[in-house]
Every structure is written in structure tokens, then in C-alpha cells.
Design a protein around this nucleic acid. Structure first.
Lengths: 187, 187
DNA sequence: GCATTGATGTGATATAGGTCACAAGTTTTC
DNA sequence: GAAAACTTGTGACCTATATCACATCAATGC
């Protein structure tokens, strides 16, 4: 499983074996069951997780009790409640497992130590964060300029693998439409 | 005007005078007139701009010709087309000036050089990018979970200064609602 | 292996918000 | 300082999508 992490990092910065061992030494391994929460609203957010197996979702529950999916995370994705994690605040999001999962997780302190010891890791995280920004901006423009059908089509193109692993109900919640509307789209 | 940039950086990392001069030496100064474009769809995006005076907007024009505002940027804000800038692609966004403006701008190469020469600047950019991420995620959740009125109220709370500098038409476009609907909200 | 829970489809109905059209005001521009 | 170009409000009407209510069918738990 380590290799998944290594390959992801090496897409951006090359690593010697020793360097990768150093990286790895700052992470811990977590194993979680389907339906298990790894972040819960109102609680601290000690870790950011790199998923090596399984599938998770982060979601927000609004004041009327409706839940909105912010992100899915499968193998090779990072997930946390950013606001809680980076600002040391309690979570506003929940994160739970849609499938049994395994992650490599790290605290903010350890991430900073790692970056101090191995400068290129800071570059790596900056690149990832930048890519994340671009994806989020595109999602905003998509929400503002496309109708349900176009957003669904776009989702299929962007994440073809996810379609078969996630119930439509949850895709609807990610796209910001009701499950009934999504159901009526897929003619 | 330099002090605005220095103060912004020093909110995150302390700088000696020499260090700040080094930082500054990588930036150029740009002055722009109201209505002037600094980024145009289909064209390269050589710079990221730090605004020291004036007000700009970035916007996307969808296939039906409707324009959607992704971002406003006033003094102390950064703006560019991220996708174009960081991936060396042509712009999908436009950026123009709502008021006469002045920016400090830098190329991606120069930013990388600067970070190599002054490590803490990489940390600075990572922090800014992270904060940007959090803001974008909140905007997505807002688009998905709040109605027009709630989004408008939230906008007023988040950006009280902007309300008086920007026509309602443009705020509507930022919020993802029609100008008529916004007009009817402000009873 | 049965019982509970979740996923999906579909009809009927409601509604927030969009679109179009026009009328004042208000800024810009030259 | 008159003309042109924006901005804002408001009425009338339309439509995409939400909501509610069932019915099936599939998956999961004990």
C-alpha cells in the first residue's frame, strides 16, 4: 500500500528510498469499517488522510438537516475537513466510510516537521493544494452555469470509476440536486 | 504601496528588510484602467497579480453567453486564472478592472525562483492556497445549501466593503442568481 | 433466511427563481 | 452638458427542480 503514496508523491517530486522512508515515518496507518466516521461535526480534526483503500465521503449537514456531499475520496485521494484541520478548529463537516477503508494519516505538526526536514514535500503539498483549488473553482462554475443534466454528464466524465461504486442518491447530493431529479435524468 | 504586500506576507512569515527587497525584486508593477482586461479567455496567463489598488473581477462566459463571476479582488487580494497560470494553459476565464487598478505581478518561473531563494515564501504561498481552498469549499456548500436570500446575507457579512463598490448586478452574478431576483430580495 | 434498511423509479403537485419587457434614474464619455 | 451606456426596480409569465407519496427491488444484519 505504501507504493500508492510513493507513486503519488513521485508524480510531483522524485524521492530516494531513504527520503520516502522519512516521509512514511511521519504517517500512521488507519483501518476503518464501512459506516465508520473518521471526522465528526463539532469535534477536533487531528489528521489529514491519504486513502490507500476504500471510499469515503465528506459532507455538511445544513440547518434544515439536509446533507450535502462536499467530496468523495477513493484510493490516491486526500481527505479531511480543511477548515478544522488547518485552523485547528472543530469540524463543520463529517467524514465517513462508504466502504471498508485504509488510510495513511498525519497531523499538521508532523506535516510541518516533514516539510522542514524535506523541503520538496512542501512543494508537493503546494502543488496538491493548487490542483485542489482549480478543481474547486471549476465545480463552482459548474454549479453556477450548468443545469442538473450537464452537471451529471460532467461528473460521469470526470469520475467514471465512481459511478459504479456510489449509489445515485449520493451522487445527487454531491451535484446539488434531489435524488428524484437525478433519477429522471438517466431516462 | 509596497507595504501592503509586505504586511500581507508578514501576517504569515516575518521578513527582514533585505528579504522583502528580494521578494519585491521578483515582482513587477502594473497599472490598469477601468474596463481594461488583464486576462482574456483563450490567451496565455503569464502572471498572478497581487492587487494594491482598485478592484477587479474574474468571470467565466458559458456556452449560452451568460457571464458568471468567480472572484472579486480588491486591495490585498491575489487574482489570476489559476488553471491557466499554474498549468500553463490558455485562460478559460477573463479578468478585468472594475476600477483603475495597480498590481504587483509575478510569473510562475519567478515565483519558483523566489521560493528556492527564500524558503519561507513557499510556506507563505501554501498558507494562502490553503486559505483559498477553505473559502472555495465554503462557497460550494453555500451554493448547495442556501437559497438566494441567505447567500446574499452571507455575502454582506463576508465582504461588507464590497457592497458599496460593486453594482448589485455583479453581486447577483457572483451569487449565482439573476439580477431581478436579487433586486426583489432587498425589499 | 427472514426482516430491516437502503436504493431506485415515477406520478402529482408546489415553488423558487429565471426570463422578458418596460420605465426611471444615474453614471460615463467626449 | 447632451447622448449613450449602465443600473435598478417591478410586473407578468414560465420552467427547472424540489417535495411528497408510493411501489419495487436489492442489500445487509443478526
Amino acid at each position: 500500500m505504501e507504493e500508492i503514496l510513493r507513486r503519488q508523491i513521485e508524480k510531483i517530486v522524485p524521492l530516494t528510498d531513504d527520503e520516502f522512508q522519512l516521509v512514511l515515518s511521519h504517517f500512521s496507518v488507519g483501518k476503518y469499517k464501512k459506516h465508520q466516521y473518521i471526522v465528526q461535526q463539532e469535534n477536533p480534526v487531528p489528521y489529514v488522510h491519504f486513502v490507500v483503500k476504500g471510499l469515503l465521503k465528506s459532507f455538511y449537514i445544513d440547518k434544515s438537516g439536509k446533507s450535502h456531499i462536499l467530496q468523495f475520496a477513493m484510493e490516491d485521494w486526500w481527505i479531511t475537513d480543511n477548515q478544522g484541520f488547518y485552523n485547528n478548529q472543530n469540524a463543520t463537516l463529517n467524514i465517513d466510510c462508504l466502504e471498508d477503508a485504509q488510510t495513511y494519516y498525519i497531523t499538521l505538526d508532523d506535516r510541518e516537521k516533514l516539510c522542514a526536514e524535506l523541503q520538496k514535500m512542501e512543494f508537493f503539498f503546494l502543488q496538491k493544494m493548487t490542483a485542489g483549488n482549480i478543481a474547486l473553482q471549476n465545480r463552482i462554475l459548474s454549479l453556477m452555469s450548468k443545469n442538473s443534466e450537464e452537471r451529471y454528464t460532467q461528473f460521469i466524465q470526470l469520475y467514471p470509476d465512481l459511478i459504479h461504486r456510489i449509489p445515485k442518491t449520493l451522487i445527487a447530493s454531491y451535484l446539488g440536486i434531489s435524488r428524484e431529479t437525478l433519477s429522471r435524468l438517466s431516462h
